[in-house]
Amino acid sequence: MTGAEEQDAMPTATLLIRRGGPDAPPRHQRFELRFEPGESILDGLRRLRIAQDPSLAFRYACLNANACKECMMLRDGAVIYACTARLEAREMRLDPLPNKALVRDLATAIAPPDERLSTQDT
């Protein structure tokens, strides 16, 4: 098997990601990632920013330590932490938390309003 054929045979993780801010009509953008067993969805999202689109917005802080809870989002409609949910070799749909104000893409305003430094950027 040649290198190219091996690459073709590599499984792919497809992420269908909600893009845009609160004023734009909802749309989803499809990203394909080389699937690597063991990676978290957060690992995949960070790889997307490095290799494909640095403008993709999502929250994270503790980097897979399951401590900060910043990366809470919806996968296929169910709430997950992106750092504990595994990337899978299939299509997964990612949406921002529906009960929080949307900032952009997968990032929502998660701090209580009276704890924010400014109302503009949360």
Binding site: G21, A57, F58, R104
Partner: peptide, 11 residues
Amino acid sequence: PGLGHDLARLD
């Protein structure tokens, strides 16, 4: 400046 959670700019 001013775009919320602009990771590229923060990076």
